[in-house]
Design a protein around this nucleic acid. Structure first.
Lengths: 256, 256
DNA sequence: TCAAAAGTGTTTGGTTTACACCCATGA
DNA sequence: TCATGGGTGTAAACCAAACACTTTTGA
């Protein structure tokens, strides 16, 4: 197995002037094939899976840093993202012994950087699956979408971070424009419903869902239909963003 | 005006081993005289008002640190507290020039500590007003409850932090045991209603409020009444904590 | 004794739920 | 041609909003 120096040879954290002790991790959600997906990276040498993350430069806010990280991982600008929790257990960033050896081995000038204690700010991000181009970072050899049931162990406390993000998504469903940011510009009612069902983890009545959604006045029904499916062609809709934002101020009430 | 050395003479941040760049600020809410109150401290020399806050020791999680800070400010243990947002604008902890002079003056060994960039994790806390004993910290000469309309300018971005806490409180009203933590063990229905009205910033119908609250099954009606008021003596209630917690899992729905 | 606060109940109208029928499409 | 998914409609149950009357209390 290669020395970690190879891994970090072009990445001197001290000269890059990142703030000590502070990292951020992003739970990037996408929606494809009627399934919720999460963007993960695979570490180069240990082949462990992890959430994409990064550090904060001296002149960046957390939000700017997270946008930079996400731009690197997806190629997208202006991604919708929200802080949801800071993970700060003192032992949370302790690596397991094998990985620690890897980091400490040789005369890697950055091993102290990695072995310091980090608190990590968790962000969740919503992206249009079809527009993102998953790109690994310097420490990973792969960046890919995974459905929730494809995800097993993640490094450190990343599983916990992911779970908290999911819980947050569920709670914020009526307060954040999740549909707008996760779906393509034009989408069908069944697609929107599947998104809701996936996030909520339960099935909803097709007809009542449609009635309620339309009653909010946040959708524009298009004349166009989505063809190519194996059955009756459903209408396409787009969000009326102005009304959507306004409606979210008070929450889309009624409970699902 | 005294040298800042006097202020920090017993408080060497380097030997106390706090993490660099990380601070926390607490918005402590209490409810008294049918009004929502916030705990503030007054800085010793500048007499500016601020949110109580602190720093994180090397072996503490944020939550442990926040509990320590709150124990110091109120004398209470096991306070209900929640992170709500990290404030991380690069310039947010820049002091105004006059205060900066104060900190830099003399050969104060800690002035570098104060002049570094901090990101601050915002916590809101809910306490039983009657049990808290406001106590200033090393940098303040006064710690006191303030109603919202008594609060003018706060230092740094503390006004922004306070506003965000209030917004969070409003959004979490149906998901967190606000009543349980803000009211005394026994309380009247009108008191509970006033709490809701204060947080929501609008009036509610007395009769509908009572019916809905009782329908949740989270209150135990006591035989006791609260005497001493100028009018008909209202019944006292207490929370059925088990049912309350259970009900909050799904949110107390219906919207107010 | 009376104004103000508190306890209790009813009517009304809207919303949610549950369910049925018809249409379109590719296998 | 038929199984499947999609569009649209309706009756019943439920819940929330608006509102009235009575009781208790200290000033």
């Amino acid at each position: 197995m290669q020395n970690i120096r190879t891994v970090t040879q072009n990445f001197d954290f001290h000269t890059h002037q990142f703030l000590n002790h502070i990292s951020l991790d992003c739970v990037v959600f996408g929606f494809h094939d009627n399934q919720l997906k999460v963007l993960l990276i695979r570490m180069k040498y240990t082949k462990e899976w992890a959430l994409p993350g990064g550090f904060v430069k001296e002149d960046e806010s957390l939000e700017v840093a997270a946008n930079r990280v996400l731009k690197d991982r997806t190629g997208l600008d202006n991604i919708f993202l929200k802080q949801f929790k800071v993970f700060s257990e003192p032992q949370r960033s302790d690596r397991n012994p094998a990985v620690k050896d890897l980091i400490d081995s040789g005369s890697n000038p950055d091993h102290e950087w990695f072995n310091q204690r980090f608190i990590s700010i968790g962000f969740y991000a919503l992206v249009d699956f079809s527009k993102a181009e998953p790109t690994p970072d310097f420490f990973s050899d792969l960046c890919a979408w995974k459905t929730l049931d494809e995800i097993n162990t993640l490094i450190l406390d990343h599983s916990q971070i992911l779970n908290k993000a999911l819980e947050t998504l569920r709670l914020q469903l009526n307060y954040q424009p999740l549909g707008y940011n996760l779906l393509a510009d034009k989408f069908t009612m069944p697609e929107l419903q599947k998104l809701y069902e996936t996030i909520l983890g339960k099935e909803l009545d097709r007809r009542n869902f449609q009635r309620k959604m339309l009653s909010y006045g946040i959708l524009n029904k298009l004349q166009e239909r989505k063809t190519g499916g194996a059955h009756k062609a459903p209408y396409l809709y787009e969000f009326n963003l102005e009304n959507y934002q306004k409606a979210l101020q008070n929450g889309l009430f009624g409970g699902w």
